[in-house]
Simulated assay, not measured.
Amino acid sequence: MTIAMVEPRATNTAGTSERLRSRMAAMKLMFHWLGTKKSLNAEQMSRAADAFDAERKFLSAGKKLFDTGDPDFRRVTAVKSQATTYYKSVSLPFPEPGVRLIRQDQVDTIHERMQSFREELAHAVQQLETRFSEVTLEARDRLGDLFNSSDYPTSLSDSFHIEWTFPTVEAPEYLRRLNPELYQQECDRVRAQFDEAVRLAESAFVEELGKLIDHLAERLSDSADGKVKVFRDTAITNFTEFFERFQSLNIGSNAELDALVDRARTVVSGVAPQTLRSSSELRDRITNQLANVQASLDGLMVDRPRRNIIR
C-alpha cells in the first residue's frame, strides 16, 4: 500500500528532524469511554439466525445500548470531540501509535486546556447521571427482550475519562551503560522516527491545504442550473485557522511548501465571504489563483511506500 507523501526536494531532513526533536515533546491523548453497543449473546444470535433462516456462524449482530442522540449524552460526546480536535490542532503526527508532537513551550498551555476539558466532561457526565435511570428505562422499552440490566453500570462516575501523558520517545539512557550497541540501535530508530515525522508533518499540511482549496473551488463553481452555490463562511475562515496553525507548528522543513502557503494566504487575505458571494469576477479570480496553488501542491506530492520504522 502507498501513501501520498511530500517529495523532499527542498528538505534538509537530517537538520530539520533534529530541530523538530529539540523543540517538540511527545504527547498521548487517551479516552476511557462507556461502550454504546454490544454483541448479542449466543442465545440471541441463534434466535436472530432462525428468524432469517440463516446459519448462526455466518451472522453477526449487535444492539445499541443507548440513544446516542439524547441531548445529555451528546453533551458528553461533544467534549470528547472538542478535546480531540484541539489536540490535533496543536500537534504534529508522529510514527508511534497514539503519539503526537507538541511544542515544548506550549506544554503548560495544552495541559491546562486538557484540564478544562476534563472538568467539562465531569460536569456533562454529572448531568447525564441525573437522568441515567430514565435513559436506561428508555433502552429497556426499545430493546425489549434484548435488554439486559447487567450491560449498564450502576454509576457513571468511572465510565468516562480523559487522560494524557507525555511519554519519552528517546533512547533510554541506561542502555548506554548496559548495552552500548543496543543503545546505538535505539538512537538510530529514534532518529528515523523523527525523519519520518518531518515527512508526515509536511504531508499533513499539504493535504489539509489541498482539501481547503478543493472545497472552496467546489463551492465557488456554478451548479448544473447555472446558479451560484451557497457556501458557509467557514469556507474562507478555515483558511485563516490553517495559516495560524501552520505558522505555529511549521518547522521550516520545506521552502516550496512555505512559499505555497504564503501564496494561498495572499489569495484569500482580506476576502470577505459576503463579497465573494456577490462578485462573480472575484470568484473567478480566486478560483484561478487557487487552482495554480493547487497545481503546485500536486507537484510536491508523490506516491511512495511509507517508510518502515524499526521497532
Rank of each mutant, 00 (worst) to 15 (best):
F231D: 04
G210E: 08
E112M: 05
A259V: 15
V6R: 02
F242G: 01
R113E: 05
L282H: 07
A122P: 00
V190T: 03
A291K: 10
P180E: 10
A83W: 03
Y86N: 00
N12A: 07
D195P: 00
R176D: 13
R191F: 00
R219H: 12
F117N: 01
D158I: 07
R118S: 08
R21N: 07
D141A: 11
P8H: 04
E202G: 03
Y174S: 12
N288D: 04
D141K: 12
E196R: 08
S17W: 03
E112P: 01
P180M: 14
M114E: 02
F243V: 04
T13Q: 05
L260H: 02
T165S: 07
H32V: 13
P95N: 06
T109A: 09
G252L: 09
V293D: 01
T287E: 11
L257M: 03
V169M: 07
F243Q: 01
S150P: 05
S203I: 04
A51E: 06
R75N: 08
R23H: 10
T11K: 03
E202M: 11
F246M: 09
A264P: 02
Q289A: 15
H161S: 05
E43L: 10
D225K: 08
E218G: 08
D67A: 08
S296R: 15
L65I: 06
Y174A: 13
Q289P: 12
K63L: 14
V198G: 00
E207V: 15
R74G: 04
N41C: 09
C187L: 13
D195E: 02
E112D: 05
S296N: 14
A54Y: 09
G15P: 05
W33C: 15
E43N: 08
Q104M: 14
G62E: 11
D222I: 03
V293S: 01
L216F: 05
A192S: 10
S280H: 07
F58S: 07
S253W: 01
A291N: 08
Q185V: 14
N148V: 06
T36D: 05
I251Y: 12
Q126T: 10
S278N: 09
I162P: 01
L216H: 01
R9Q: 03
I162W: 01
R285L: 14
T275C: 04
E163I: 03
D53L: 14
F160R: 05
S60Q: 08
R74E: 13
R219C: 14
T85S: 14
R74S: 12
P8F: 07
E181A: 15
Q126E: 13
W33S: 15
I3G: 04
S150Q: 07
S203G: 12
E138M: 13
H161K: 10
K57Q: 07
